[in-house]
Amino acid sequence: MKQDKLIKAILMAVALSAIGGLGLITLFIFKEGLPIILQIGVADFFCSTDWSPGEQRFGILSMIVGSVAVTLGAMAIGVVFSLGLAIVLTQFCPPKVAGVLKPLIELLAGIPSVVYGFIGMVTIIPLIREYVGGPGFSVLAASIVLGIMVLPTVTSISIDALNAVPRSFWEGSVALGATRWQTTHMLLLKAARSGILAAIILGMGRAIGETMAVIMVTGNSLEIPRAITDPVRTLTSNIALEMNYATGQHRKALFATGVTLFIIIMALNTLAMAVSRRRVAGGGNR
């Protein structure tokens, strides 16, 4: 009993210190970043495309657009492949094959992002330059690289969502004469919809937060992109590229960029949780 109490106290301390760390980071980012947003003016900070630290002008609109463009592109590519994979692995391939392939796909999550960026640089960028046009460093390149990077997250959670659909639904459908494909698209995808949506949102969070691979393939230009072959800079790359030498207002503006990212990712995570909670509460009512 005494031992239990001791262990409980130790575990509690460990848990609290982890949460405390998270709290401190949040506090620090906001303390450093929030005042400068107010000082520059919310409208000027978020709605101007003029980022000239030398002249004390800090507008991050082009980077917001960059992050959004790259993320949407990544999701367009990642979701199609992830859903396809999840459907094949849960419905169409022998369980033994799925048992081998699923861990392999999850292994993709363990490859360092700098490796993805490097592969993007040496293979995808020359291909885009040659066959699609533009400098190669572009929204398109980042979308492809990030699309592959979100694959393990989205696939894995979608597989769990599809596997969580009660077998009785599947049996009912098959007993009505439906084929596997009919059962999949007419019933299973609808029954697993909220789980799949949560997977997509979590994938988005990962895509929007990715830094290294993105720096290596986007070209980091400060213009608002006009085409998918144009180079862009994202919020994350902005911080990573300039933090090394930034001081004073400039440094604070980078923290403010971090605040922006923080809010976007928090919003996405909250959305993901709300969506997956609805699944539990609704008992598959949708």
């Binding site: 009785s168 639904f169 009912g172 098959v174 007993a175 009505l176 004469g177 009919q182 019933l187």
Partner: peptide, 29 residues
Amino acid sequence: LRRRVGMVFQRPNPFPLSIFDNLAYGPRV
């Protein structure tokens, strides 16, 4: 065969769709 020989299960297993879509499911299949 399964259109001609239908099955009702032990536990009611309506699909997580609307009443209409449940009934239209078979004909649509």
